[in-house]
Amino acid sequence: MTTHMQAGDTPSVHTLVHLTWCENRIEHWIRFGRIAGEQRLDRHRRIVSFAPDSIFACVRWAGNAHGTITSRIDIVRAPAPGESCQTLAFVQPGGDILLRVAGWPKVETVLGAINAIEAQGIAAADVAPDHWRHIHTRVAVTEPFRTYTPEQHRAWLRRRGLRT
């Protein structure tokens, strides 16, 4: 369930993601993830928050009259308070970057992988972090990656259950 943050709220345990949407100019959006809170700044900008250890994907695209200027997708694990993390534009304090690709062909490949996972009835936010890292390394060198299977997912959920 999404809670709405008020001006001045400082959810220090949450990871904040600043999103902008100016149609056909700057489009930042969340592709998947469980949003814990949201604050609308104006009609083009909002801030969403994610609980520690949650996984989310943020897509950033910018263009002009001539087409796409830049496109990228980042799949990130939100850090726990005090946990070290990598810096990431528009994300405070940062996160554990599981996948980061730039360029529309690679972004499109990752979006296709997300769609394929969700087509199996698996929430992308629940996928094993190591699978996102695997896709990152394979897409970076333009090589095929393994398909995420329901069997792998069940094994990941069992392992995760043992760690808590």
Rank of each mutant, 00 (worst) to 15 (best):
F56I: 15
L162C: 02
W21G: 01
A123H: 04
G37Y: 01
W104I: 08
P52N: 07
D42C: 08
H28N: 09
D42M: 08
V59P: 01
T2R: 15
G103V: 10
A124V: 14
L157N: 10
H14T: 04
F32P: 07
H44P: 03
P81R: 13
Q152T: 09
I114D: 07
T137D: 10
G37M: 03
A119P: 00
V17N: 04
H66T: 11
G103H: 13
R34N: 06
P144W: 07
D42V: 07
T20R: 12
A51S: 13
R46W: 02
A140F: 01
E151Q: 15
A116D: 11
I26H: 06
V48C: 09
S84V: 12
P150D: 07
A102L: 08
A116K: 14
A36C: 00
V76C: 03
D126E: 13
V91F: 03
P144L: 07
R43Y: 03
P129I: 02
P52S: 10
A57K: 11
T109K: 09
L111K: 10
Q92H: 12
T15M: 13
W21M: 09
P79V: 08
V17H: 06
H153R: 06
S54L: 05
R60F: 03
A57C: 14
P81L: 08
T164M: 09
L99V: 04
F90L: 10
D96C: 01
R146S: 11
T70R: 14
E23S: 04
N64H: 13
R154Q: 15
N64Q: 04
H136Q: 12
V110N: 04
V13D: 09
G94E: 02
R154E: 13
I35N: 03
R45E: 10
I47V: 15
L16W: 14
E118A: 02
G95R: 04
A80V: 06
V107Y: 07
E38P: 00
A119C: 00
H136C: 13
E151A: 15
G37I: 01
L98S: 04
R45Y: 05
Y148K: 13
L157Y: 12
R31H: 06
W21C: 00
H136S: 12
A125D: 13
T10E: 14
P144S: 14
G112F: 01
V101G: 05
Q6D: 12
L41I: 15
T137I: 06
K106S: 12
Q86S: 15
G37H: 08
H136M: 03
P105T: 14
S84A: 06
L157G: 08
R146G: 01
M5E: 11
W156P: 09
L16F: 04
T149H: 08
A7D: 12
A125K: 08
S84H: 11
H18Y: 11
P105Y: 11
T87P: 07
R146H: 12
E23I: 10
N115P: 00
